Simulated assay, not measured.
Amino acid sequence: MIGDLLPSWAVAEYARTDATDDATGVLFPEEEDCVARAVPKRRREFTTVRLCARAALRRLGHPPAPLLPGRRGAPCWPDGVIGSMTHCDGYRAAVVARAGDGLSLGIDAEPDGPLPDGVLDVVALPAEQDQLALLGARRPTVHWERLLFSAKESVFKTWYPLTGRELDFHEAQVTVDLESGTFSARLLVPGPVIGGRRLSSFTGRWAVDGGLVMTAIALPAATPD
Rank of each mutant, 00 (worst) to 15 (best):
T17W: 08
R72K: 14
T20C: 13
E110Y: 07
V174Y: 02
V26Q: 08
P29T: 07
V35A: 06
P161H: 12
E45Y: 02
E128L: 12
L67W: 12
G118A: 15
F28H: 13
A38R: 06
I2W: 10
V213P: 06
K157N: 03
F169P: 03
A97G: 07
P140S: 12
E110Q: 11
V189Y: 01
L178S: 06
T48L: 03
P190L: 03
G100K: 08
Q173C: 15
A127W: 02
C88Q: 05
A221H: 05
V155Q: 01
R59W: 11
A124R: 08
L105G: 07
F169E: 01
S154H: 03
R37G: 14
Q173P: 05
D121P: 04
W206S: 00
R98F: 10
T47C: 07
A133M: 14
R44H: 13
T175F: 06
P220Q: 02
I82N: 00
V208P: 06
P126D: 06
G61S: 04
F46T: 01
I107E: 00
G80V: 09
Y160P: 09
P192A: 04
R139S: 10
V208K: 12
R16H: 15
P220N: 01
P7M: 07
A94L: 13
G61V: 03
E32R: 12
V119D: 06
V39C: 11
L115A: 08
D33M: 13
A55Q: 14
